[in-house]
Amino acid sequence: MKSIAINKEMQAALTPSAVLQDLLDGNTRFTGGKIQAVDNSALVNQTTTGQYPKAVVLSCIDSRVPVETVLDQAIGDIFVARVAGNFENVDILGSMEYSCKVAGSKLVLVLGHEACGAVKAACDGVELGNITALLNNIMPAVHMSAEEVEGEANSTNKAFVAATVANNVKLTIQRIREKSPILKEMEDNGEIQIVGGVYNLHSGKVEML
Rank of each mutant, 00 (worst) to 15 (best):
Met1Trp: 02
Lys2Glu: 15
Glu9Gly: 07
Gln11Phe: 06
Gln11Tyr: 07
Ala13Tyr: 00
Val19Trp: 03
Leu20Cys: 06
Asn27Phe: 04
Gly32Tyr: 02
Gly32Leu: 03
Val38Lys: 13
Val38Asn: 08
Asn40Ile: 11
Val44Thr: 10
Val44Ser: 08
Asn45Lys: 15
Lys54Cys: 09
Ala55Val: 05
Val56Gln: 09
Ile61Trp: 01
Asp62Trp: 08
Ser63Pro: 10
Arg64Leu: 07
Arg64Pro: 11
Pro66Ile: 00
Pro66Ala: 11
Thr69Trp: 00
Ala74Leu: 02
Asp77Tyr: 05
Asp77Val: 10
Phe79Asn: 07
Val80Leu: 09
Arg82Lys: 13
Val83Leu: 13
Ala84Asp: 09
Asn86Ser: 13
Asn86Trp: 01
Phe87Pro: 01
Phe87His: 07
Asn89His: 08
Asn89Arg: 01
Ser95Asp: 02
Met96Glu: 06
Lys101Ser: 15
Lys101Asp: 13
Val102Pro: 02
Ala103Arg: 01
Ser105Tyr: 00
Lys106Met: 08
Val110Glu: 09
Val110Leu: 07
His113Pro: 14
Glu114Asp: 14
Cys116Asp: 12
Lys120Leu: 06
Leu128Trp: 06
Leu128Asp: 10
Thr132Trp: 01
Thr132Val: 03
Ala133His: 06
Leu134Glu: 09
Asn137Phe: 02
Val142Lys: 06
Val142Pro: 08
His143Glu: 15
Met144Glu: 11
Met144Thr: 15
Ser145Pro: 03
Glu147Gly: 15
Val149Phe: 09
Val149His: 02
Ser155Trp: 08
Thr156Met: 06
Lys158Met: 08
Ala159Asn: 14
Ala159Gly: 05
Val161Phe: 01
Ala162Arg: 10
Asn168Met: 08
Val169Lys: 01
Thr172Phe: 04
Arg175Val: 07
Ser180Tyr: 01
Pro181Phe: 03
Lys184Tyr: 00
Lys184Gln: 12
Glu185Arg: 12
Asp188Glu: 15
Asn189Ala: 15
Glu191Arg: 03
Ile194His: 05
Gly197Phe: 04
Tyr199Ile: 06
Ser203Val: 12
Gly204Thr: 10
Met208Ala: 11
Leu209Lys: 06
